[in-house]
Write a protein that binds this DNA or RNA. Structure first.
Lengths: 186, 186
DNA sequence: CATCTGTTTCGATAGATATCTAATTAGACA
DNA sequence: TGTCTAATTAGATATCTATCGAAACAGATG
């Protein structure tokens, strides 16, 4: 929905069209003249604006009069202000807001971890965050794992063990690799 | 500027990116993992968001941490509310706001002219508006000119004469054509 | 200095979309 | 009904852009 709104406005022709119909009603012909475009092109753009609810159509004979739908504009103007709205855009692959908050609380400005939380509930998102520093489908030596972990916290042993314990990393013959998120024990 | 803003947000990947960095700082790697995209792609999108002033970059070692620039979002949220702002979007090819007002005042709901203003100052934008109903580079017979003019006002003789007088239309051997706006006597 | 790691830049390619002409639809009018 | 006018839809084409792999770049580390 929000995406549709932005797409509708992400073209010079449509922005100018909206400017014109914001001033007063215009017919397709008028707009085509003012914009130096052909009617089909204008019609196409108006259809997109209409689909997004940004213009309103009044039909009189065979003439179609388009005008701005200010309400929609106001509505989206408000929508893009709230962080909550934006966070939902992140889609299904994102961590939840709650998990994000945990990680944020434990991160220092330089991106390292302040500490390792005692409770399992808080530990899980931290470990998930850490596990995402590994690429799926790539193999790591123990030294590589240590290096990556150590960049976030000095206690590499504990973290390495926990990552394996939660089935985020797997180990065999001293070689580590990242497991798909579906397998993680959260 | 406003166009750049909308373009930056008119893609699903960038909307989701913005959602992620709105929650907390993220590195390019993290984002690439979360979005199931390669680093170059993410980097490219972040560059666009940055160009539009929507994200802020904090560099720590090799790692680039991106975060939302809420200020920009608020600023544009306000910008799209005002009709005045929108009208300016119409760009250079549009009539000025003042001229638009004149035309609007003389237009009846059906798109015809109420009257022909007496003062030159008001007559010019009306004539310009009328002249734009003709296509540049096309030739019109006098009958065609009459037909087009008559659709807006019954006094076709006066209008036809004025259009030629203001060098909006030219005539030779009973054939009319529209002159470029640069030549119009306004 | 040599190397390693995270990021960006480059070049190529596939997919989306803006625009046009031609054809079609739909209202008005005789 | 047939014609005229304004608008839309269809189809074709050219431009733009999202994405990737490869290469270049820059900071950190030994």
């Amino acid at each position: 929905m929000l995406l549709q709104f932005f797409k509708a406005l992400a073209h010079e022709s449509r922005l100018r069209l909206l400017g014109l119909v914001a001033a007063r009603e215009h017919s397709v012909q008028e707009l085509a003249n003012l914009m130096a475009l052909k009617e089909p092109t204008v019609s196409h753009h108006l259809a997109m604006l209409r689909e997004a609810g940004l213009v309103r159509l009044r039909q009189d004979g065979n003439t179609h009069w388009y005008a701005l739908e200010q309400k929609t504009l106001s509505q989206f103007s408000r929508a893009i202000l709230g962080r909550e709205q934006l966070a939902t855009l992140a889609g299904p692959k994102t961590q939840s807001a709650g998990e994000d908050r945990v990680v944020r609380n434990y991160l220092m400005p330089d991106g390292r971890l302040k500490a390792f939380p005692a409770t399992l509930k808080k530990r899980r998102p931290i470990l998930a965050w850490l596990a995402r520093h590994f690429d799926e489908g790539r193999r790591y030596s123990e030294a590589e794992v240590n290096a990556i972990v150590e960049r976030r916290h000095h206690d590499r042993e504990t973290f390495r063990r926990e990552l394996v314990g939660h089935r985020m990393l797997a180990r065999k013959d001293g070689v580590y690799w990242r497991l798909p998120e579906a397998d993680w024990v959260l």
